[in-house]
Design a binder for these strands. Structure first.
Lengths: 213, 213
DNA sequence: TGTAGCCTCACTGAATTCCGTGATTTTTAG
DNA sequence: CTAAAAATCACGGAATTCAGTGAGGCTACA
């Protein structure tokens, strides 16, 4: 069996200790290198032939997200599993979006971690249940911004604006005066508190306004 | 044990047949009503005391998404599990966003369906693995739109535009001439193919451009 | 029955964006 | 080193947006 070399990165030594124990007891693991910060991981990657990096997200100097970005650029063949406290949705989104090979919460157990390692080494992605759950929740989160109420006509106008139509074009499409369209625009800006159409459309997209109906 | 009443909706009778068999063999199920279209479900909801609706998404007249919307509005206490072919990410997104209680692919097996029913009846949500997987993939999907390459400065300008700044304000913030900002704007529109700043920002948000770095 | 919200329309003027065109300097990559 | 891409700046004019103000008709609801 081909054994693998791993780097683990976290700014808490106790955590590294536990992580190290769990990994070294695995048959398929050859060496475990330790880092407490992102740049250190990058240095180790140059020195050794590393198959997998397991890194925390919250670290001083260069954090896990930055590390993930760099690693995917410079060492695309090295796998990376991210660890995090699952505190915010934004982080989860970024990690997934930047194509980490795995993502596991820090409060996971030995079994899951080992499973994650084996899965990623096998060339597949591993996202833990808790992560997936959190990620789903982020969809619901956004509803908070849904309170501002635009009228039916205003939504219609805003939608056409997002489709890059001008006031004149919208007025022709809806068979109303351009002045009316302009009034709707003014009210949209008023209600959303946006200063520009761009801002209002951005609000609409992010709040999922266009996903209704 | 308190038994439950269910409505199943699908425009394929064979499918309804199988669904019916699986459900009626469950101890906790009292009655299974059948509908082939959304509006019919709404009528049945008025006539009977229904605990759970299991509905396909692709149906004539009133489809599953519309049904879901209506049901959540008029019968918030009735659970609803959606079934779909998982053909597109957009649909999955909508179903989750509209707070369906469960979501299971149509090619699921008996066990999973029964598990979904029990979970939802128990007051929890149930999303099948396949759905969650698909949903995660949608994040990667969006990368397709990432090909258009804006320069660093252009991205910077576009970002400030999304923050509702005018060319003048941006020029002051970046310590460059307003003419330069205008040139960047022109190039942004050129590269993205957008006709308006609004369109370019919309593209940027939807492609996750601002999530980088 | 009134009042509140929505939809409609109009006019003005200032500010801003959009379009076309051209050019210089700096940076990047082969 | 050299070609390509990026970043910088400029000018002019047409089109569009934004801001302020006013107003009439319609509907829903209390």
């Amino acid at each position: 069996m081909k054994k693998i070399n791993i780097i683990i990165a976290d700014d808490h030594l106790m955590f590294l200790e536990g992580l190290n124990t769990i990994l070294t007891e695995m048959d398929e693991v050859e060496n475990v290198h330790i880092a407490t910060e992102g740049k250190q991981v990058l240095r180790l990657l140059e020195q050794f032939n590393i198959n997998l990096v397991i890194s925390d997200i919250n670290m001083p100097k260069m954090d896990g997200i930055a590390l993930l970005t760099e690693l995917k650029k410079k060492h695309p063949d090295t796998g990376i599993i991210m660890l995090s406290m699952l505190d915010n949705h934004r982080t989860i989104y970024k990690v997934i979006q930047k194509k980490a090979d795995g993502f596991v919460p820090k409060f996971t157990n030995k079994e899951e971690l080992q499973k994650a390692v084996r899965t990623v080494i096998g060339g597949e992605q591993y996202f833990s249940e808790a992560i997936k759950k959190r990620y789903m929740e982020s969809v619901f989160e956004r509803d908070k911004f849904k309170n501002i109420e635009l009228s039916k006509r205003e939504k219609e106008v805003l939608y056409h604006l997002s489709e890059e139509l001008t006031s004149k074009e919208i007025s022709e499409k809806l068979f109303i005066s351009i002045n009316t369209v302009e009034t709707h625009r003014k009210n949209i800006l008023l209600k959303t508190g946006a200063k520009t159409t761009t801002g209002a459309v951005k609000y609409a997209i992010e709040s999922g306004l266009f996903d209704e109906d």
